[in-house]
Design a binder for these strands. Structure first.
Length: 561
RNA sequence: GCCCCCAUAGCUUAAUGGAUAAAGCCGCGGACUUCUAAGCCGUUGAUCUAGGUUCGAUUCCUGGUGGGGGCACCA
């Protein structure tokens, strides 16, 4: 519909002798300004030497003739042209949604394209904390946005199972007496890491020992260290899987620094002119490109994260096949680093560098400041999910919920947490507000889930009195909630193009709000109301939109709560 | 010191260069005695600062202030 009007506006402007226009057709924020609006007259008034309103008057007859599905066209304000769509347009949208709920919102603009999305990227041996929860929610929603726009998506997780941080943990394991035979937990590993990291920083003799452990881990030439390492890695990765299961992420493949390390080192050595020697290390001179210099191989010839990342791009292609686009979503703390890295990558694999995109999302901070797994000042993801789920279950029991069970409580918890992570621009840093995440009222995941469940309930009740969804007898004036409904497919497109899942959150919240206002004034389960079947159809269409939209956000939509 | 990012209501956040800057939380006040009150309705309250571009700037440009991140062998 929007495209039809855009074309009509373009044609109308052409009659005035203007072929190139930067005017737009948009959805006005205020519904008194119609269903669609264009600023065409404002944009071109100056070059035509007329007032904006005069230009609008001149365009009006052309637009009226070209747009039979528009009920009314008016000129308003400084010269906006506002279009009010006919009733039939809205009825058609509701009909479309209820006839084919599965495909509602989807498009095929990226059909045939393969996109790799890398996200979460926790480091084994360290705690999986709420920051990882945030990065996971962002990556998952980006992946799903690609899917609803038609792309084939491969989810990928890249984990740092070698490197100095692991040596810190292994040192800590030795010092704290963790033993593979006696058994230990992921939590013990987190403590071991914090212990080792602190000792590394404070005592030079320990630092020497840890660097030694680091060499042994890479070389795998010390049996005691190998045993500790292997056990720690396994416990850590198993623990991560329990979190992925809770948040609903299924990775297609996992990559590890232990495999990218040797390949990365080889790549650096194969390109000595790109990575010259400096102070015993191999570096990339980013200054030559307006960036900064970074070390790729340290003076012990061990690959740094930078060298590993070079190899990762190639290994992804080898394992997953040729791809069209590759997203790497991480915290914005490493934005500058990534610019250097992509620059270096473009020197050795220009084709891969061209289709690799880094999304540096905001960092989660505690009210007390930045989290640090080095000092152990983190909130473990699993603890937090459980705490929110406990609160949700408590509330269900207290309010006499239709479905007071732990599984639904966990769905609500995941909804609350993901909503908190995604409700604002993902690029901005955010302060982690526990009370807000624990609140299930107002703009929140549970608000959307509740609205979805509530619709299910009322539709059931309606069916019980013989009211089933039908669009055959609509009331003459569309309900406000119907006006929101039709924007959904377009929201999914722009949210992807702008890498902005929060647009989906904002939209769904507005939709739920409009529905709840509708629900408060209109009775649906009423066999005596001729419009009841149409109201039920609207309710059903909203429910489908919420369900499909929540899916994009990675938020489960329980049938009852 | 150099580079990058950010600044909207007491708090958390919206707003493709457009019309009266929009929500939620908090506070205050209502309705409902009938479909799930995790709901609905009303109400107080904001664009860091000085310029510039534009018919029009929260949005784009420049300076300033304040905050965050990065800048050689961590990731």
């Amino acid at each position: 519909m929007k495209h039809v009007i855009e074309q009509a506006v373009k044609d109308a402007i052409a009659t005035l002798g203007i072929t190139e226009s930067r005017c737009v057709v948009e959805y006005p924020a205020d519904e008194s300004h119609g269903d669609l609006s264009t600023n065409a007259a404002l944009v071109h008034a100056k070059e035509l030497g007329q007032s904006p309103r005069a230009v609008a008057e001149a365009l009006l007859p052309h637009l009226t003739a070209a747009l039979p599905m528009v009920a009314n066209i008016t000129i308003a304000g400084p010269g906006f042209i506002n279009f009010t769509l006919s009733r039939a347009v809205f009825t058609k949208t509701v009909t479309t949604v209820i006839q084919d709920p599965q495909t509602w919102g989807k498009n095929s603009s990226l059909t045939g394209k393969t996109v790799i999305v890398e996200y979460t990227d926790p480091n084994p041996f360290k705690e999986f904390h709420i920051g990882h929860l945030f990065t996971n929610a962002v990556g998952e929603s980006i992946a799903r946005l690609f899917m609803v726009n038609g792309a084939s998506v491969k989810r990928v997780n890249y984990q740092g199972d070698v490197g100095l941080h692991v040596a810190h943990a292994v040192y800590g394991m030795q010092a704290l007496g963790l033993s593979p035979t006696a058994g230990f937990t992921a939590r013990d590993l987190g403590r071991a890491y914090a212990y080792g990291a602190t000792a590394y920083k404070n005592e030079e003799t320990v630092a020497v020992t840890i660097r030694d452990i680091n060499r042994h881990i890479y070389a795998r030439d010390n049996q005691d260290i190998n045993e500790l390492y292997d056990a720690g890695r396994r416990v850590s990765l198993e623990y991560f899987e329990t979190v992925y299961k809770l948040v609903g992420t299924v990775f297609d493949d996992y990559f590890f620094e232990s495999e990218t390390g040797p390949r990365g080192k080889a790549l650096v050595l194969e390109h000595p002119s790109v990575f010259p020697k400096s102070d015993g290390a191999r570096i990339f001179p980013g200054e030559d490109y307006g960036l900064h210099t970074r070390v790729f191989l340290n003076h012990e010839d061990l690959p740094t994260y930078e060298a590993k990342e070079l190899a990762l791009a190639k290994i992804k292609e080898e394992r997953l096949g040729n791809y069209d686009h590759s997203i790497i979503s991480t915290s914005n703390e490493i934005n500058e680093y990534f610019k250097v890295l992509l620059c270096a990558l473009s020197q050795i694999y220009p084709d891969l560098a061209n289709k690799t995109e880094h999304i540096g999302h905001g960092t989660v901070r505690l009210t007390t400041g930045k989290m640090s797994s080095r000092t152990g000042d983190v909130i473990a993801a699993i603890d937090f999910i459980n705490e929110v789920a406990d609160a949700a279950l408590e509330r269900m029991i207290a309010t006499g919920s239709a479905a007071p069970d732990r599984t639904v409580a966990e769905m609500v918890a995941i909804g609350a947490i993901k909503y908190t992570a995604l409700h604002g621009s993902i690029l901005q840093d955010s302060v982690f507000d526990k009370d807000r995440a624990l609140s299930f009222e107002g703009d929140s995941g549970p608000y959307l889930q509740y609205t979805h469940a509530r619709i299910g309930s009322v539709l059931e009740k309606a069916a019980g009195v013989g009211v089933t969804p039908s669009t055959s007898t609509p009331p003459p004036v569309p309900y406000p909630v119907e006006r929101l409904l039709r924007a959904f497919p377009e929201i999914l497109e722009t949210a992807l193009h702008e890498r902005a899942p929060h647009q989906v959150v904002t939209y769904l919240t507005a939709l739920a709000s409009a529905f709840n206002a509708f629900y408060a004034t209109e009775r649906i389960a009423d066999a005596d109301d001729k419009c009841a079947p149409y109201k039920a159809a609207v309710a059903s269409a909203v429910q489908t939109t919420l369900k499909n939209g929540l899916w994009v956000l990675g938020i489960p939509a329980p049938e009852r709560m």
